[in-house]
């Protein structure tokens, strides 16, 4: 897996962000166009391409969903442009309930506490799906990869909830 190789880190869904950030700076120090300002135009062009790829690799590695999608696509299951939706009635039901809860947050008697409590729920779902994903992505079994794809779809729902929550928080506490 090229991005992991580039950053010299083990291929594993659980990554050490500190190492990734540290290696990122070393890589940019080597390839950034400013370090090649006096080189031939060929060198400069290569520098821009390499720096852009390293930036893209960093964004991919840092973001849990993008990282999972990338690993899965390297395994041969590319779901990044899919139109398919999740077929899991139980999960979707739960999401609907959570959405309703979210909408009522701003009218709650103690929005601060309600938001903190909701944040906890999101965190819990996040770590539950992430842990499963790590195991599924490490497996050699194609069936596990399909389960991983479903887990990524679920994580996307969870992150959307988190973004929504942030938006509500902003509108509540901004003057």
């Amino acid at each position: 897996m090229r991005y992991f190789e580039l950053f010299a880190i083990p291929v594993d869904y659980q990554i050490d962000l500190a190492t990734v950030n540290k290696n990122y700076l070393e890589l940019q120090r080597a390839v950034h166009p400013d370090r090649h300002a006096n080189s031939s135009s060929r060198d400069k062009l290569l520098a821009v391409q390499n720096a852009a790829e390293i930036n893209d690799a960093l964004q991919t590695l840092k973001h849990p969903v993008k990282r999972a999608e990338y690993m899965l696509s390297e395994l041969g299951v590319d779901i990044r442009a899919e139109q398919q939706t999740l077929q899991d009635p139980l999960f979707l039901m739960q999401q609907m309930e959570l959405r309703e809860e979210l909408e009522e947050l701003s009218s709650s008697s103690d929005p601060d506490a309600a938001i903190t409590q909701f944040e906890q729920q999101i965190k819990q779902l996040d770590s539950q799906y992430s842990a499963q994903l790590a195991a599924q992505l490490a497996s050699n079994d194609e069936q596990q990869w399909q389960l991983a794809a479903d887990n990524i779809r679920k994580l996307k729902f969870v992150y959307k909830l988190r973004d929504e929550l942030e938006r509500i928080e902003d509108s509540l506490f901004d003057d």
Partner: peptide, 20 residues
Amino acid sequence: ERRMDASIKKALQGQSVDNV
């Protein structure tokens, strides 16, 4: 191209590269 690849490799020299 070779120089760029070499400098990328050099940048992370001495880092552990297990499992890659």
